[in-house]
Design a protein around this nucleic acid. Structure first.
Lengths: 237, 237
DNA sequence: GTAAAATGTCATGAAAATGTAATATTTCAT
DNA sequence: ATGAAATATTACATTTTCATGACATTTTAC
């Protein structure tokens, strides 16, 4: 499947994980699972799911702790979280939403309800921030259509170069080390040669160059910072 | 580098401690070791390592206990912990690990994977906070973008000159001996000719001069203190 | 399945940065 | 003024870092 969204299910009961997994599968999502907060955290950092279903009542009360932590760290703060809980207490809700959790589903729930909530949250979170096109001069990256255009002409590049450019355009005027770029673009704990980043930077520059007209060359936006990494900047190098 | 990061290895097997120690050394970390949870705790409080590698199978199950304790105490809660676990023998016990540990690695692991995970965790925990730009008149050094500007024009300099200027701008109005500058800019355990500092001072001054307009020359901020060293000062020499 | 596209690694050469030594200049006490 | 000491500047060999093209392999589209 082309662009299936991935949901991470975090629950210590296998029966619940299976049930949810089947429901998600039916609804056209792919899913992965974790039993513990630790396992979940590693999975999230490594594989960046589109949404996390998180059981409130994980052993050791670590569900809420994990949620707080995910929202605190920049790398994971954008990933929507739906909390699952058996309790209907208002306290929990307040506490959970306070942490920045996106929604809240109480057990027992129907698969249909769960799927509906998931879709709603995904729609909301992708609709707000990530769907807005980013524009720098005549260079535009449109997440909705997954397209990059320069002077309204499509810029041809591979998926990795797209993610790279997307990361740069959403984090302008900052240096990033090759390691950091790997974390953001490839996912943490993917072991690549450091130079691989260079190669993709080169490919991105080339794509921008061949799309640039005779005027300014947009590849100049991707700047090499010797000894430090790379930087996306509109200012002269 | 200015601050070499220190990793504490906590494992009861000497062979594993040695192996990890060598791997870390190769990767440019310095390391210290502890055999028992008690010894580890003393080391941590005493010497504040940047990260702890903790075997959870310490005698008496004290590895988990130590992790829990470290995360509970405010003084040590911010120190990242990576758990070393044997093969997932008893999943039930693994759940007890949900104490806020940052990552885990299952034995046997490759040194490469371990180092990559350590770097990733360190990036996540320390990379978030970034320093604010420092400005002196029209000279600005911005750590986030790793850039020096003078009247909004980029000042071109090498990495060493950047570190040098960064050190001076964060420690203005004080004289520093060449030795002290070496420690701060090159690192404590690097031996250089004393005159090397002079050369880099010269390069920094030159960079500032060629970026300065016809008005005041910013290289005057880097002042020679005969017989003592150098000083960064906004006051006339 | 097959062809095209994408990906990651390596080798190579170019460019930049670095540290040292040699030489030039400045400073200061006398 | 003069010479010694301290610092500045220059030149250069070496090392480090980066860009790029080639290539084998994997993934994707059809």
């Amino acid at each position: 499947m082309t662009n299936e969204q991935t949901i991470l299910i975090v629950d210590d009961e296998a029966a619940i994980r299976d049930m949810i997994g089947i429901a998600l599968d039916t609804a056209g999502f792919s899913s992965m699972t974790a039993e513990t907060a630790l396992e979940a955290h590693v999975n999230i950092v490594d594989r960046k799911p589109d949404l996390v279903l998180l059981d409130w009542m994980l052993p050791g009360g670590s569900g809420i702790e994990l949620a707080r932590r995910l929202k605190r760290e920049e790398l994971t703060a954008d990933i929507p979280i739906i909390m699952l809980t058996a309790k209907t207490s208002e306290d929990n809700k307040v506490q959970g939403l306070d942490v920045g959790v996106d929604d809240y589903v109480t057990k027992p729930f129907s698969p249909r309800e769960l799927v509906a909530r998931i879709k709603a949250v995904l729609r909301r979170s992708t609709g707000n921030l990530r769907d807005k096109p980013i524009r720098v001069f005549d260079l535009e990256l449109d997440p909705a259509s997954h397209r990059v255009t320069l002077n309204d002409h499509a810029v041809d590049m591979g998926p990795t170069e797209y993610r790279l450019l997307n990361f740069f355009m959403t984090h302008p005027e900052k240096v990033f080390s090759r390691d950091h770029i790997q974390d953001q673009v490839w996912g943490a704990n993917v072991y690549l040669e450091e130079r691989t980043v260079d190669v993709h930077i080169g490919r991105l520059r080339k794509a921008l160059t061949s799309a640039s007209g005779p005027g300014i060359n947009y590849s100049g936006l991707i700047q090499t910072v010797r000894g430090a990494g790379y930087r996306f900047s509109t200012r002269a190098d």
